[in-house]
């Protein structure tokens, strides 16, 4: 079983990475690695049907759902480091380690007997075997699952539905509101300044410069500022000044 010994350390490392990574998106990607590896382990253990279901349901549907919600909630929503209960984190790590040790030690002492193997059960193929059981012994559970799935779907729709409490603002309303803001507070009624007009950097992470040389806060997306990926104008200005100095020196040496 080479596959197991390659995948098992990878899975444990990725699972740990999922727990410790600061950004939720990284956690989701680590979880994807664990789930695909699990699917391969299912295939190695004579469960091709579960292999396909694991890939389709977990890595396909569940993880996509996680990523969608992460995008809706905002990628910059990272963990708070404030401990509401004093020492909870250390205690939790200790308890988790203890749990792992107890579980693994317990498993190490158990003798599980000879492996029968699924060759006989899978004699007409794994999928017919699973189907035969599912539609005979487990048919009631299977029917109940359908009720569960439809309830879950309806529940999710009810929870995600947002009732509109006020009328949708029309273009006219918005224009009036803009002009009112201009009259009351002097807010500029025109469009926001575009980003990326700083000398040689023409990208959205570069703030536009105001006439007095200060970067304009309004020209950068709120999300980029939250993530801290806005270009540092002062660093750019220093770099440009340095390049200008060097070219002046070179040109001066050539001309005079």
């Amino acid at each position: 079983m080479i596959a197991f010994w390659i995948l098992a350390p990878l899975m444990v490392v990725c699972a740990l990475g999922m727990v410790v990574s600061r950004k939720a998106v990284h956690s989701a990607l680590m979880l994807a690695v664990v789930m695909v590896s699990l699917a391969i382990l299912y295939a190695a253990q004579d469960a091709p049907f579960l292999f396909a279901v694991q890939i389709i349901v977990y890595t396909g549907a569940v993880l996509m759902l996680f990523l969608f919600v992460l995008m809706l909630v905002g990628v910059d929503a990272s963990d708070s480091l404030v401990e509401t209960l004093r020492g909870q984190r250390l205690l939790a790590i200790a308890v988790g380690l203890l749990f792992a040790i107890v579980l693994v030690a317990g498993l190490a002492q158990v003798t599980v007997g000879a492996v029968v193997g699924l060759d006989e059960a899978n004699i007409d193929g794994n999928v017919p075997g699973v189907a035969r059981l599912l539609f005979s012994n487990y048919v009631f559970a299977f029917e109940v699952t359908s009720a569960l799935l439809i309830t879950a779907a309806v529940g999710a729709m009810v929870l995600a539905h947002r009732e509109r409490l006020s009328a949708k603002p029309t273009q006219r309303d918005m224009a009036l509101a803009r002009m009112r803001d201009y009259a009351d507070r002097g807010v500029h009624p025109g469009p926001l300044p575009g980003p990326g007009t700083f000398a040689r950097h023409n990208s959205v992470d570069t703030p536009a410069l105001l006439p007095d040389g200060t970067p304009s806060e309004l020209s950068i997306s709120r999300v980029m500022r939250a993530r801290g990926t806005v270009r540092d104008v002062e660093a750019d200005r220093a770099a440009i000044a340095r390049v200008d100095d060097e070219t002046n020196v070179l040109r001066g040496g050539g001309d005079r």
Binding site: A8, M11, F99, A100, V104, V115
Partner: peptide, 17 residues
């Protein structure tokens, strides 16, 4: 099956943690 079970136990503990 023991290595599989140990891996399963480890993953479960990491999830709990």
């Amino acid at each position: 099956p023991t290595p599989f079970l140990v891996l399963s136990a480890l993953l479960f503990s990491i999830g709990t943690l």
